[in-house]
C-alpha cells in the first residue's frame, strides 16, 4: 500500500469517527421562549439508542450508496453515474406514491414512514427489472443502452409520481416530498437496517475479491475481452449488486442524492483508481459523507424543524462536485 493510499484511508477513517462522535454527542434542549439550544455532551441513557440508531443508519446507507455509485461508474464507464441514473430512485418514489394513492382511494390507513419501506423497495426493484431487461443487447448489458433506458425509466416514473399526486390530499403530498428529501431514521426497523448492512457487506466482499477484474473492465472493452474477462457476467454482477445496494438504502433512508455520485470521486482522489483500495475507500467515503451531513444537520436549527439530510448532501455535494469538475480531480488521477 502506498503512502498516498494509506493517508487517504486514514483521512476517511478520521472523518467517519469525527462525524460519528459529533452525531452521538450533539443534541438540543428546549428553551422557555420556544427556541432550542444546541448542546454537546455524552447523551443520557434515554437518548443514546436514538442517536446510535441514526448513526448506524447513516453508516449503513452511506456505505451502500457509496459502493453502488462506484460499481455503476465502472459499469456505465461514466463518471456521472450514480444510483439514481438507472431510475431506481424514481422507481422507489413511484412505489411510495402508488401506496399512498391506493391507501387514500381504498380508505385504508396511510402507511407511516416505516410502512413506506416495502413499496419503496418494490418500486426500486421494478425499475431495476425494467432497466435490466431493456438495457441488454443479445442478452448482454450494454452500457450506453442501459444508461438511456435508465434515464427514460427515471423520467417515466417521475412523471407517473407527479400524476398520482393529484389523487392524494395536500398533507400526503407533503409527506411524499418529505420522503423524497431523505431522512435518517432514529429508530430504524431492525430488519431493514440489518438487511442493508448484510447486503453492503456481501457486495463489498464480492467486489473486493473481484477488484482485479473490475480494473480490467475499466481498461476498455477490447482489452478486457483479450484478457479473457467475461464482460457480460461482470456487468450483470455490477448491475445487480448496485441495484440491491440502492434498493436497500432507499428503503432505509429514502432517496438521498449526491452520496453515490461523489463518494467514488472522493475516494479516487484520496487512494487512486485501483479498485482493490478504491472499493473500501468508497465505502468509507460514502459513510463519511452521509454521517457528516447527518451530524451537520444536528448543528443547524432553522426554527421550524431540522434540515432534511438530502438538502445537506446536495448543498455540500454540489459545490464539491463542481470543484472536482473544474479541477479535473477525482477521475483523472
Amino acid at each position: 500500500m502506498t503512502f498516498r493510499a494509506l493517508s487517504g484511508l486514514s483521512i476517511l477513517v478520521v472523518i467517519v469517527l469525527a462525524a460519528a462522535l459529533v452525531r452521538l454527542t450533539v443534541g438540543r434542549v428546549p428553551l422557555e421562549d420556544g427556541t432550542w439550544q444546541i448542546v454537546f455532551g455524552i447523551p443520557v441513557r434515554e437518548l443514546l439508542p436514538l442517536r446510535l440508531g441514526a448513526t448506524v443508519s447513516a453508516l449503513a446507507a452511506g456505505w451502500a450508496l457509496g459502493l453502488a455509485g462506484c460499481l455503476l461508474q465502472v459499469l456505465l464507464r461514466n463518471p456521472l453515474a450514480s444510483p439514481w441514473i438507472l431510475g431506481l430512485s424514481s422507481g422507489a418514489g413511484l412505489g411510495v406514491m402508488i401506496a399512498l394513492a391506493i391507501a387514500v382511494l381504498a380508505g385504508v390507513t396511510i402507511p407511516g414512514g416505516g410502512g413506506l419501506m416495502l413499496p419503496a423497495v418494490l418500486g426500486a426493484l421494478g425499475a431495476l427489472g425494467i432497466t435490466w431487461s431493456l438495457g441488454r443487447v443479445n442478452g448482454v448489458l450494454e452500457p450506453l443502452r442501459l444508461l438511456l433506458v435508465g434515464v427514460v425509466v427515471a423520467s417515466l416514473a417521475g412523471a407517473l409520481s407527479m400524476a398520482l399526486q393529484d389523487l392524494v390530499p395536500h398533507g400526503l403530498r407533503a409527506d411524499f416530498l418529505d420522503w423524497m428529501m431523505g431522512r435518517i431514521p432514529e429508530s430504524p426497523g431492525g430488519g431493514v437496517l440489518g438487511t442493508t448492512l448484510v447486503i453492503a457487506f456481501v457486495v463489498t466482499m464480492v467486489a473486493a475479491f473481484g477488484a482485479d477484474r473490475i480494473d480490467l473492465a475499466c481498461l476498455g472493452e477490447d482489452e478486457a475481452r483479450s484478457s479473457g474477462l467475461d464482460l457480460g457476467r461482470l456487468r450483470s454482477g455490477l448491475f445487480l449488486g448496485a441495484g440491491a445496494l440502492t434498493a436497500a438504502a432507499v428503503a432505509l433512508v429514502g432517496p438521498i442524492g449526491f452520496v453515490g455520485l461523489l463518494a467514488p470521486h472522493l475516494a479516487r482522489l484520496l487512494v487512486g483508481p485501483g479498485h482493490r483500495l478504491l472499493i473500501p475507500a468508497t465505502c468509507l467515503a460514502g459513510i463519511a459523507m452521509l454521517l457528516s451531513a447527518e451530524a451537520l444537520r444536528q448543528l443547524i436549527d432553522l426554527g421550524g424543524g431540522r434540515l432534511h439530510v438530502g438538502v445537506v448532501t446536495a448543498l455540500i455535494g454540489g459545490p464539491f462536485f463542481l470543484w472536482l469538475l473544474c479541477t479535473g480531480r477525482g477521475w483523472t488521477r
Binding site: P30, D33, R306
Partner: peptide, 26 residues
C-alpha cells in the same frame, strides 16, 4: 411545545421535551 406553528421534530426532541402525555390525532 413552546414554539409557534406546525413543527417537524424528531424522536430525540420528544424525549428531551419529556412531556407527560402525547396525543396522536389521526
Amino acid at each position: 411545545i413552546r414554539a409557534p406553528g406546525y413543527l417537524e421534530s424528531s424522536l430525540e426532541d420528544l424525549v428531551v421535551l419529556a412531556p407527560r402525555s402525547v396525543v396522536i390525532l389521526a
